[in-house]
Amino acid sequence: MNEENIDLSSQVGLNLREIRKSKRMSLDDLANVSNVSKLTLGKIERGETNPTVNILWKICRGLNIPLVSLLSFKENIEVHRFGSNYQFSGNNNDWFVEPLFNTHGTEWYRGCIEPNSEYSECHLAGSEEIVLVLNGQLEMKVGEKIHQLNQWDVIKFNGEELHTYINRSNEKVHLMLSLSYTTR
């Protein structure tokens, strides 16, 4: 598949429909368990909208699947160029994440948090997250504990616990993230 011809919104829609049907769920069923409207789910499945990462997390929690299940392409060799169109952003566009790879149950992402911003999330039960700070400084709040991280520092934590990425600087902070699931 030619990199320039990949349409992530369409692929997410196809993957969502396939997973939903394999679980024998209607759009109404999925709307009830994900707290995402049936109308929005239908638009996503048809590739008519580019959902935020928050919407995708809700859907994944409702389906009890990892995020990369919705974002995966079947390729033998994958190259993900920085700044591609594969980014999903937070509600205020102060956080973005790019899905990269799914390798033996571990999802890999590239992320960026804008200056003077923060973003919170939590993942499925049984998940473990690892964050590598590529530049600058980042505060990671995991539960109630705050960790100060500098360039090249790495943190590993229970992904199902509420965690917040905090950038108090005036520069973007770039990250590499991995997310693994021990149970599916």
Rank of each mutant, 00 (worst) to 15 (best):
Phe73Met: 03
Glu160Gly: 06
Cys122Thr: 04
Lys141Arg: 12
Leu41Trp: 04
Asn102Ile: 09
Pro51Glu: 07
Cys60Asp: 11
Met176Tyr: 15
Leu67Gly: 00
Asn76Arg: 10
Ser26Pro: 07
Thr103Ile: 14
Asn54Leu: 08
Phe88Glu: 03
Met140Gln: 02
Ile59Val: 08
Glu18Met: 09
Asn91Leu: 05
Leu41Gln: 10
Met25Val: 02
Asn2Pro: 09
Arg24Ala: 14
Arg46Trp: 02
Ser169Arg: 04
Leu39Asn: 08
Phe82Ser: 13
Lys74Ser: 10
Gly143Pro: 04
Thr103Glu: 14
Glu45Gly: 10
Asp29Trp: 07
Val154Ala: 00
Glu139Gly: 14
Leu132Gly: 00
Cys60Gln: 12
Glu45Gln: 09
Leu16Gly: 12
Trp57Phe: 04
Ile155His: 00
Lys23Leu: 11
Asn116His: 04
Leu56Val: 12
Ser22Trp: 15
Ile59Arg: 09
Phe157Ile: 02
Thr182Phe: 11
His147Met: 02
Gly83Asn: 11
Leu134Asp: 11
Ser89Glu: 14
Arg61His: 14
Pro66Gly: 02
Asp7Lys: 15
Asn135Met: 09
Ile44Glu: 09
Ile155Trp: 00
Leu134Val: 08
Arg46Tyr: 02
Cys122Gln: 04
Val133Trp: 01
Gly159Pro: 06
Glu161Gln: 09
Glu144His: 13
Leu27Ser: 01
Glu129Lys: 03
Glu78Tyr: 13
Thr52Pro: 05
Met1Gly: 13
Pro66Met: 01
Asn91Val: 00
Leu132Lys: 03
Leu41Pro: 06
Ser72Thr: 15
Gly159Trp: 00
Ser10Ile: 09
Thr183Glu: 15
Gly83Phe: 06
Arg110Thr: 14
Ser178Gly: 10
Leu27Thr: 01
Met25Phe: 09
Thr164His: 00
Ser127Asp: 01
Lys145Tyr: 03
Met25Pro: 02
Asp7Ala: 14
Tyr165Gln: 05
Arg110Lys: 14
His104Asn: 11
Lys172Phe: 08
Leu67Met: 03
Glu75Lys: 12
Leu149Gly: 09
His104Phe: 12
Asp29Cys: 12
Gly13Met: 08
Gly42Ile: 12
Asn158Gln: 06
Trp152Arg: 15
Glu114Gly: 05
Asn116Cys: 06
Asp7Asn: 15
Val173His: 07
Ile55Glu: 03
Gly83Trp: 10
Glu18Gly: 11
Tyr181Val: 07
Arg110Ala: 14
Leu124Arg: 11
Glu98Ser: 11
Asn85Ser: 06
His174Ser: 12
Val142Ser: 01
Lys156Trp: 04
Ser84Pro: 04
His174Leu: 13
Glu128Ser: 01
Lys145Leu: 03
Glu160Arg: 02
Met176Val: 13
Asn158Tyr: 00
Ser26Cys: 11
Lys172Leu: 04
Glu114Ser: 03
Gly42Thr: 13
Ile19Leu: 10
Asn54Trp: 09
Ser89Ala: 15
Gln87Trp: 05
Ile166Gln: 00
Gly83Ile: 12
Gly42His: 10
Asp7Cys: 15
Tyr109Met: 01
Glu114Tyr: 02
Ser178Ala: 09
Ile65Tyr: 13
His163Ile: 00
Ile44Phe: 11
Arg24Tyr: 13
Asn93Thr: 07
Glu118Leu: 07
Leu8Ser: 15
Trp152Cys: 15
Ser22Met: 13
Glu18Asn: 13
Asn15Glu: 07
Arg24Trp: 09
Leu71Asn: 10
Asn102Thr: 05
Asn50Leu: 12
Gly62Phe: 06
Glu161Pro: 07
Tyr86Met: 07
Ala31Tyr: 03
Asn92Leu: 03
Ser84Gly: 14
Lys21Met: 10
